[in-house]
Design a protein around this nucleic acid. Structure first.
Length: 252
DNA sequence: CGCTTTTGACCAGCGC
DNA sequence: GCGCTGGTCAAAAGCG
């Protein structure tokens, strides 16, 4: 499904990585996974029910101050600046390019809300609605997740942790985000060639999970979905503290 | 030996 | 109720 234009309206495009960085060497972002705001304008029910009217457009915009992200690191399989400049997901920002050396990797970010149903919708949205099939999806292929389905999702009682969805251009499936993960499952999702992998944080008392899969429409793109909040610091936090200024430039 | 990965089985939610 | 699907479990295998 969703063979048509991907609905990327809710994703923010950001660059990640530095040229020639080896795995674990190029710090990009360090932050903790904080609770998204419940009353943020783009996390209200209206946001989803009217998503048909949201222009399919990518761009840079500031994230809410109280929303931080899991740490991400650059890794060796970094797209060239050429790829970045030509990527349809967003326009390159000269200041970011210069601050990181002119090359980098494009990825998109999808924010999840604290409320279960929003998290479901947004993540599914970032995944271009690859979840379950059904006739509804045939009528909303360009959206991926229809408003109808979202309403149904909102009625789910099962409580979900807040989620963040990253779309990354990379040859490497698993981002080095500073945390240690243990794979606990792998599943072949319908209508996709690549399996989805399930990881859990190895830290005791930390229930953060993440899913990693390749985009069906573009296998070069890796979708990483974080679920939950880390109750600890990254395992290699010391390394992360080496270039804080770059961090600031990167996201703000 | 301890940790991680693999993978088939199982379970829950949902549509019909 | 049944089948489909995504997510998780857990035993076995792999690895350093």
């Amino acid at each position: 499904m969703a063979q048509d234009a991907p609905h990327q309206a809710q994703c923010a495009s950001v660059r990640i990585g530095a040229p020639g960085t080896t795995p674990r060497s190029g710090l990009v972002h360090q932050a903790q996974c904080a609770s998204p705001i419940l009353d943020a304008p783009d996390t209200t029910p209206r946001f989803f029910e009217e998503q048909d009217q949201i222009p399919t457009q990518m761009g840079f915009f500031p994230f809410p101050p109280n929303l931080t992200l899991p740490p991400l690191r650059a890794f060796s399989a970094i797209a060239s600046s050429e790829n970045f400049a030509g990527n349809s997901l967003g326009k390159p920002r000269p200041d970011l390019i210069s601050s990181l050396g002119g090359e980098g990797q494009l990825l998109s970010l999808n924010r999840s809300s604290h409320v279960n149903s929003w998290a479901w919708g947004e993540v599914a949205d970032c995944m271009m609605g690859k979840s379950s099939g059904g006739d509804e999806h045939h009528h909303h292929q360009h959206l991926g997740v229809s408003a109808i389905k979202m309403k149904k999702m909102k009625n789910r009682r099962k409580v979900r942790e807040p989620r963040f969805c990253f779309k990354t251009l990379s040859e490497v499936d698993v981002l080095d985000d500073g945390y240690k993960w243990r794979k606990y499952g792998q599943k072949v999702v319908k209508n996709t060639q690549h399996p989805r992998s399930y990881y859990r944080c190895t830290q005791d008392n930390c229930r953060v999970k993440k899913r990693v899969e390749r985009l069906a429409e573009d296998p070069r793109m890796v979708i990483t979905t974080y679920e939950g909040r880390h109750a600890h610091s990254p395992s290699n936090e010391l390394e992360d503290s080496q270039s804080p200024s770059q961090l600031t430039n990167f996201f703000w």
